[in-house]
């Protein structure tokens, strides 16, 4: 499967990545070769093999329902670009 310019632009947009026009052909080539590798793997006969959701064949460990975290707001907000009234500030979101 070979990606077109429009595919690359869409993927970049979905990932919110800004890419320059001149780099698009290179991205298209690189991404296409990744897909080619996936296609190659797809050709392997996997009849009778149960698909795995994770490469490790073990089950999720669970933790007890206990509050173990303390309030560290001041530390977290010290590295935020902008805060007010203890809220994180982000560019205006309008629905």
């Amino acid at each position: 499967m070979s990606l077109e310019k429009a595919d690359v632009e869409k993927i970049a947009h979905l990932a919110r990545l800004q890419i320059s026009e001149q780099d698009v052909p290179e991205y298209a080539r690189d991404l296409s070769s990744i897909l080619a590798l996936v296609e190659q793997m797809g050709a392997v006969d996997t009849t009778g093999i149960t698909p795995m959701a994770h490469p490790l064949d073990i089950a999720q460990r669970l933790r007890a329902d206990e509050v173990t975290e303390e309030n560290q707001r001041e530390k977290f907000q010290a590295i935020a670009p902008a805060t007010e009234n203890h809220l994180f500030l982000v560019p205006k979101v309008i629905e």
Binding site: E84, N85, L87, F88, L89, V90, P91, K92, V93, I94
Partner: peptide, 12 residues
């Protein structure tokens, strides 16, 4: 998200 006015920004 809190859409009150925080210097034209949104509070989270």
């Amino acid at each position: 998200s809190l859409h009150e006015d925080f210097q034209g920004m949104t509070g989270i």
